[in-house]
Computed example of a mutant assay.
Amino acid sequence: MTLMRFDPFRELDRWTEQALAGSRNLRTMPMEALRRGHRFLVALDLPGVTQDDIDVTVERNVLTVRARRAPLAQEGDDVIVDERPHGEFSRQLFLGENLDATKLTADLTDGVLNLEIPVSEASKPRKISLSDRPVTTAAAGQ
């Protein structure tokens, strides 16, 4: 498997945060991940987050995305409604050995962090050509 679909520790963190916060407003990054040819594409929704507030790191086979969104309210504001999550968000993806994390690219467009991770050359299917040498049948006749 190339991307871990379920991380029990992450789910436990989400449930704990939900219970302690007392609301359904979790600090998550909705994600879409797919394979297209020889590359994996990952899109993470980060509305209202600037490029300077996003950190993407890879260590061994773990890709970590951290983002920070500050609240709009400033000191002295009279907040009427505050339903937007703010603070620090993080998401980890476990990359398979068949991916080339050294060639990972990332860009932020319209509040969506787009990651592209190519399949490593060694993992791509390759055609093996047959040699023109005649096969000896001496071993087969004995």
Rank of each mutant, 00 (worst) to 15 (best):
L20A: 05
P134Q: 11
L26Q: 07
P47M: 00
V81G: 03
S123G: 08
E11T: 15
A33T: 01
A122L: 07
T28D: 13
W15E: 14
L130R: 09
V112N: 03
G37E: 11
D100L: 11
A106Q: 14
H38V: 14
L93N: 03
P118C: 04
P118S: 03
N98V: 12
A138T: 11
P47C: 00
L93V: 01
V119D: 04
S123L: 12
R91V: 12
R5T: 11
P125T: 08
S120F: 04
P8G: 04
M1C: 09
A73R: 02
A139F: 09
Q74L: 08
L108R: 00
T102R: 11
G37N: 13
T50P: 05
V119K: 08
V81Y: 15
T28L: 13
E83N: 13
S129A: 14
L130T: 13
L26S: 06
G48I: 02
D110Q: 08
T16P: 01
V79G: 00
R84V: 08
G48K: 03
T50R: 09
T109K: 09
G111Q: 03
A19N: 11
T105P: 05
S131N: 12
K103A: 12
R35T: 13
T64D: 02
E88M: 10
L104M: 04
L41A: 01
N114C: 06
A73Y: 00
E75W: 08
S123A: 15
V81D: 12
K103R: 15
G22N: 01
D53T: 07
D82I: 01
